[in-house]
Design a binder for these strands. Structure first.
Lengths: 202, 202
DNA sequence: GTTAGCATGTAAGGAGTTACATGATTTT
DNA sequence: AAAATCATGTAACTCCTTACATGCTAAC
């Protein structure tokens, strides 16, 4: 079973569809794209960039006639320090599209939910709905399981544990309501424009 | 630098202070203690249990005069299948207390927040406040940083990314308000009973 | 007595961090 | 020209999952 794309790989390809970026800048945009949580260290980022490059999904951009006069920076080996700007290749675009429209095991879909959502503008309408509904289903299932077992041992728990549990449930419930709103919104969108199923940028 | 306790280790010790448990059961209680998220696999759990045992922090409980008649199960090697029940040793209690009252680097404190909170009943009042306030500070700092950089690139983002960002910020803001409530509650508690600083069970 | 679920365990590997090292550019 | 910050890179390690294997116990 070929290992699926990681969060970071997908997010990187997603970000590079809009603008070519170098690693350092990419990292900043990532924490923006994925929220206050989820910052990746350079120790993860740079190896991933190289891997993507070796697989031909991204490529370095030559500085054309920019500020720097120091030539031969980019493609070949040895003395390449300073910014290395990457852009998405044709293969990369294709790969990203196939990742964005594919389904995976639920654990994978959960882990990747926020990236997938952040890249909804590049995702077709059917997949958007599938992702939102899939997440909704899994969250409510977990909610049900927790509520059930919580009921059985409620009296054995101290006030802090109870409060943590209450707060956790509330957070998930809120998430479900958020998803509900998005789902009805997507449905409305679909009925207004039934033909839409490819790229879109706002 | 001796590696700090992991979430799972601390949670395990915390759960075992109340009741002796075997691994399988422990796992169920863990997902309850730590909310709908955070379920650990057996591949993680059992090695951790053995490690804790080897370090003398937990010990197997002999079945005394329980149902089973099959002797010599527990301590020594070879044929031990069926439940293995663990309890906290004196060393384990001591270790847990020292972990619960110690401070760590902020990344560690963030990762461990929920476990620490779940074990507040066994934590002294000063530490409770320190943990709550520390988390509040870190969250507001992140909030500020994200808001700031978000303002700079808002117009370059599509509607989905914006919605994700908005939702993320809202979640964190809500968390901060939750912490505020807990902090004032702890302060009130402290002024009503200024001497409390050790174990407590509800 | 055999299926189903409880219970424990191990090996391989994935995804990420930390700590470190170093080069390039800007600021003072 | 020194200091700060931008920018890239690597090695070792941690925590955890997956996939597998196996034994025990109860239900039918």
């Amino acid at each position: 079973m070929r290992s699926r794309s990681t969060v970071l790989e997908t997010a990187t390809l997603g970000l590079l569809t809009t603008v070519p970026l170098h690693g350092y800048e990419l990292r900043k945009q990532l924490s923006l794209l994925l929220g206050p949580l989820r910052a990746f260290s350079y120790g993860t980022l740079y190896p991933v960039l190289r891997s993507l490059q070796q697989r031909g999904l991204i490529a370095t951009v030559e500085p054309t006639q920019a500020t720097a006069a120091t030539t031969a920076r980019g493609t070949s080996l040895s003395g390449r320090r300073g910014r290395i700007v990457y852009e998405l290749t044709a293969d990369g675009k294709e790969h990203l599209q196939s990742v964005l429209s594919s389904a995976g095991p639920s654990a994978w879909e959960d882990e990747n939910f926020d990236v997938r959502f952040a890249l909804f503008a590049q995702t077709d309408a059917d997949t958007r709905l599938r992702i939102l509904e899939g997440r909704r289903t899994r969250l409510t299932e977990k909610l049900e399981a927790v509520r059930e077992s919580a009921a059985r041992i409620r009296e054995r728990l101290d006030e802090y544990t109870l409060e943590l549990q209450r707060h956790g449930l509330e957070q998930v419930e809120r998430e479900v309501r958020w998803l509900d709103g998005l789902i009805t919104q997507e449905r409305g969108r679909a009925s207004r424009d039934p033909r839409e199923n490819q790229k879109e940028r706002g």
